[in-house]
Structures are given as C-alpha cells and as structure tokens.
Amino acid sequence: MIEEEEIDLLLTDLFEVYGYDFTHYSRASLKRRINRLWLLDKFPSFAELRFRVRSDTDYLKRFVEEVTVNVTEMFRDPQFYRVLRTEVLPTLAAKPFIRIWHAGCSTGEEVFSMAILLTEANLIHKSLLYATDLNPEVLETARSGIFAMAPMKQYSENYILSGGKNDFSAYYTAQYGHVKFNSSLSEKMVFSTHNLVSDQSFNEFDLILCRNVLIYFDKVLQQRVLTLFDDSLGPLGYLALGAKETLKFSTLQSTYRQVSGEKIWRKQS
C-alpha cells in the first residue's frame, strides 16, 4: 500500500518530468488507482514503481491511462439522453451551426451516442463534435469508431429507453466480435488531446458534456474546470454533468438554471 508521502513524490515527478498535474485529483480515488497498478504490475517496492514512471516514457503512458478512469458506455443514464432529445436539441435546432464539446470523452461511446441523437434530429449536417481527452491512447480508439460487440445489447436497450425509434444495429456493422460505427456518424467529429487541468478554452460551444470526470477532481480543481466551461459556453449554452455531479459547490450555480431535474444546466446570459 502506498503512503501519502509517496503519492506526493510521485505526483511531483509526474509534474516535473512530464508536466502532468494530478495534485488536485481526488486523493482517495487516485491512491486506490495507484495501489491497483502497483499490484497489477508487481512492483517489489515503491522505489521501483517510481523509477519506472520517471524513466520509461512508454510506461508513463500506461500509468496515466490506468490511473485515470476510462470507463464509459453508450446512452448511459437513458433518461438523460431523453431530455437531450426532447428539451435541449430542439432549442439548438434554429442555430446555423451547433458546436458540442465532449470534455474527457475517453473511448468515445458518448460522442457516438450524441451523433446518433443529432442524426435522428436531422441536425448532424450542421453540427461539429469536439471530443477531447487527456489520454492519446483512448482517443485512438474513439477515432477508430470500433468497439467491442459484447455490450451492444445493453447499449441497444439504453438507446430504446432514451427514446430511440430505430434499429440500433443499423448504426454499425459487426465483424469478429467488434462493431464499427457508420462513418456518417464520425464525419463531424474532431478528436484532440486536451488536459482540463492545464489547457485553456479553445472555442465557444452550445453544449458541453463532461460526465463523470469532475468526480475525479477535488473541489478546487472542479471550480477551475467549471470556470473554463463557463468561459467556453455561448449565451444560453448548456452544460451537462454526470448523474451524481453538481454545481452546488461552485460559483456557476447562480447564473445557470437546471433543466428538467436532469444534470443539465443552461447558462442564463
């Protein structure tokens, strides 16, 4: 088990050697992830774990990918997607152009879910989906549009619960235990690395989705990232968070109004 002081050493190394700043990540979760990796990769001591991280850039990639959490699914919380369909997208339909940012998109399941919603609302042709993540590796998966076959049954059920009326399997072709989503969905996606901790706003958006990312940050970093989102949202833009995330600890709360009891807030000016 890693000690608090050892975590501090490791975090200092990551920042000084590579510029990754994890100091404002939720400590309890970070500690658990580092312990998990220590066991998985069978380091005999902390010193050896530390040396590997400092000196081996290939291992660093693994470290960052494993310590950050990259669990995601399509149409997670179907009711959330239902509200996007019925209440959010209709208010964006009149715009000449719709810009959406998936911040911390991981392997992209949520971006493809959104592309399906936009397709069904006849808005995909004038939309752009910016999908960013800290990890270059997960972005490669997202960019490929290729996912494992096994969870598709669950995703299809989620899709129907979200108000989807089509045959979900028409959106992909299956082969060898994997599915590839139709290129009509990915044409409007732009993938790029972006670190919410250190990178700035890069565009103005109508909708920002950042679901189950803020839970890994402490309150200080949460506030900083929420301010970054605020700076990146146009007037009357929407911010969508995960099911258990909230604006209640942030300064944004007074200028945003929650939509239909879901974790979606609309900027009031």
Binding site: S26, R27, S29, V71
Partner: peptide, 18 residues
C-alpha cells in the same frame, strides 16, 4: 453504479471505475 470513497477531509468522492 459508483464506488463510494472517503477523503481525508471527511467528505465523499465517487469513482466509476471497474
């Protein structure tokens, strides 16, 4: 659908890992 963790300052944090 979340793991429930406790921080040193005696607040909760959530985690949706494996």
């Amino acid at each position: 659908d979340y793991h429930l963790l406790i921080e040193q300052d005696k607040s909760f944090s959530l985690d949706d890992s494996e």
